[in-house]
Design a binder for these strands. Structure first.
Lengths: 170, 170
DNA sequence: CGAGTTTATCATATTCACATGATAAACGCA
DNA sequence: TGCGTTTATCATGTGAATATGATAAACTCG
């Protein structure tokens, strides 16, 4: 039960760009080297993120990749979406017809975990993870418990969704 | 982020055997037909479950598959184990070195969800799902909230763990 | 025993995620 | 404009998960 390897590449790459792409764009070679990931494969992955308006890309000198939005407006779900259909994980037993009307036998119990899972990706942002990098050595377990409880019934101000942008890349 | 298709087959098959294998063994053809799953592929999957002591199998007339233990002693983790290594999903970013000592930036937040996920598979049994089939139309949401909270810090009497065998994954 | 039934296993095919290498297209700058 | 740099794209390869079909092995019962 996991996200694909490509999605993990994407998450780590976006995180790296968020860290190192503040002043100027980051090049594929730098990201591939830092992440120990195949260069050309990562190139395709980054390009997919650019098409999804998560990153902005530029060619030639001064080219590379930068975040398309502030880190607190990029949810993990946005990064994962081009590679993994997280919403397709709602039925544990893989039944397409499993849902509100004819639930499978695992539905009521699985739904709780599934919701927490989707809420995690929807509400956690790149900025949250950057906070972990810059921040304190560890979180207080007491706060963690509260955080998961919040995931069950999402708080009033979740991560802002990406605005539908009509901007075209040249 | 998902369990493999084979694991879904296994869960549905074990559930089917638990329902229909009370008096006498269930044959592969019956299961394959009921689940709309390739017969020979399911055969291999069921055989793996037999090797893992989740099912018992017999050949010839009166042969077929039955549960190797009472339904309340078969956790979903036991069924999934031969096909998916659930414990390998502890780092969201896929870093092998991510752990207690050098956590990745997503570690503190992801750990909460990951623990709930593993607890679900460890503490939910086939009997729990059978209850859903036989039982009431739906659970009370109030109880669901409590159930997930229980997953965070497991209750006193979880499903009995499979005894440690020297079985190897294929 | 011998015939029929059913699982176990082997050999092979198909599909897709992941990866590699080469080439094309766009960009900045002298 | 022309050259070097960097991303975009194409063509292809590899391995694991999934699937298919045939054959072997084990079991029941007349």
């Amino acid at each position: 039960m996991w996200i694909s390897g490509t999605t993990q590449y994407a998450l780590r790459a976006v995180l790296f760009v968020a860290e190192h792409g503040i002043d100027e764009p980051v090049r594929v070679d730098a990201i591939a080297a830092a992440l120990s990931v195949p260069r050309n494969y990562l190139s395709k992955t980054l390009h997919a993120l650019a098409r999804a308006n998560v990153l902005r890309s530029g060619r030639g000198p001064r080219g590379g990749f930068q975040l398309a939005d502030p880190p607190d407006q990029i949810s993990l779900a946005r990064v994962a979406a081009p590679f993994d259909d997280l919403s397709a994980r709602s039925c544990l037993l893989g039944r397409t017809s499993c849902g509100w009307k004819s639930p499978c036998s695992a539905h009521p119990r699985w739904e709780q975990v599934s919701n927490a899972l989707q809420a995690f990706f929807r509400d956690t942002t790149i900025a949250d993870l950057l906070g972990e990098i810059a921040g304190r050595p560890s979180m207080s377990p007491t706060n963690d418990r509260a955080a998961l409880a919040a995931l069950i019934s999402p708080p009033s101000a979740p991560a802002r969704r990406p605005r539908a942008s009509t901007r075209r890349r040249t």
